[in-house]
Amino acid sequence: MLALSQPAFVLHSRAYRETSALVDFLTPQGRLRAVLRGARGKAGTLARPFVPLEAEFRGRGELKNVARLEAGGIPNLLSGEALFSGLYLNELLIRLLPAEDPHPAVFEHYALTLQALAQGRALEPLLRAFEWRLLDELGYGFALDTDRHGQAVVAGGLYRLQIDAGLEPVGQLQPGVFQGADLLAMAQADWSAAGALAAAKRLMRQALAPHLGGRPLVSRELFMTLKEPPRD
């Protein structure tokens, strides 16, 4: 099978046999799993998360072989909360993105998000935008400015999310509902609106939960541990 060069990022890597690694890559052609031979050499030093790569893969089955791996750009140097945010993005892609299902828009948005994280941009808007784009690309998206009946969201209204259907108007305040004003701010990506970011975080958790199979995200737990105040 002809090996074609394409841009790639490492999502996850683990030791495989004596000197190889089993690596999950994100490419414009989707998420690929491949064996990287000689992982303790030069190729292994490149096979790190957040490094833009140029890669060639061989093989017809689900498990490919890395035929070539070279640096494809400037590494995105992430640390602290930005590092955990990057790991969160990687885990989302591994858990949600089907193998070998092309999503070039997801790849492009991921690369831009890594650059923004490396530049020290505010984390929460970047994460919410990535979650939203990923859900939309996978066919799980829904409108934020109209409800499931096609009616415009009203700023003073209350709504709850019905998975696979959209926003349902509700008559009274209850756990898990959203203010119409917050939903409209999200639709415009207006993060200056009070409460919009917190509401967006709740909304994305609700929207992602059914697609994560009930298993918690390891990166989210690590991030929460990082943010916990030290104990006496």
Rank of each mutant, 00 (worst) to 15 (best):
L2C: 05
L2W: 14
A3S: 15
L4S: 15
Q6L: 15
F9P: 02
H12L: 10
H12G: 07
H12Y: 12
S13Q: 14
R17D: 03
T19C: 12
V23F: 07
V23W: 09
T27Q: 05
G30C: 02
G30S: 03
L32E: 14
L32D: 08
A34P: 02
L36S: 06
A39N: 07
A43E: 05
A43F: 09
A43D: 07
A43W: 12
G44P: 11
G44A: 08
T45V: 04
L46Q: 05
L46C: 05
R48F: 08
P49N: 08
F50Q: 07
P52N: 08
A55I: 14
E56H: 08
F57L: 07
R58K: 08
L63V: 14
V66S: 02
A67S: 10
L69H: 10
A71E: 06
G73Q: 05
N76R: 15
L77F: 09
S85T: 01
S85F: 00
L87S: 01
E91R: 03
E91H: 03
L93G: 09
I94W: 03
R95C: 00
R95E: 00
P98F: 11
D101F: 11
P104D: 02
A105E: 11
A105W: 03
F107W: 11
L112P: 08
L114R: 13
A116F: 06
L117A: 09
A118Q: 10
R121G: 04
L126Y: 10
L126V: 03
L127Q: 12
R128I: 01
A129H: 04
R133V: 09
L134K: 07
D136I: 01
E137T: 04
G139K: 09
G139T: 05
Y140E: 05
G141R: 09
G141V: 06
F142V: 05
D145E: 14
T146M: 13
H149F: 15
Q151I: 12
V153W: 11
V154D: 10
V154A: 14
A155E: 12
G157F: 11
Y159L: 02
L161N: 08
D164C: 07
D164P: 01
G166D: 08
G166I: 03
L167C: 09
F178Q: 09
F178W: 07
Q179Y: 01
Q179P: 00
L184C: 12
D190K: 14
D190L: 13
A193T: 15
A194W: 10
A200P: 02
K201A: 07
L203S: 01
M204Y: 04
R205V: 01
A207Y: 06
A207W: 08
A209V: 00
P216H: 14
S219H: 03
F223R: 03
P230T: 07
P230V: 08
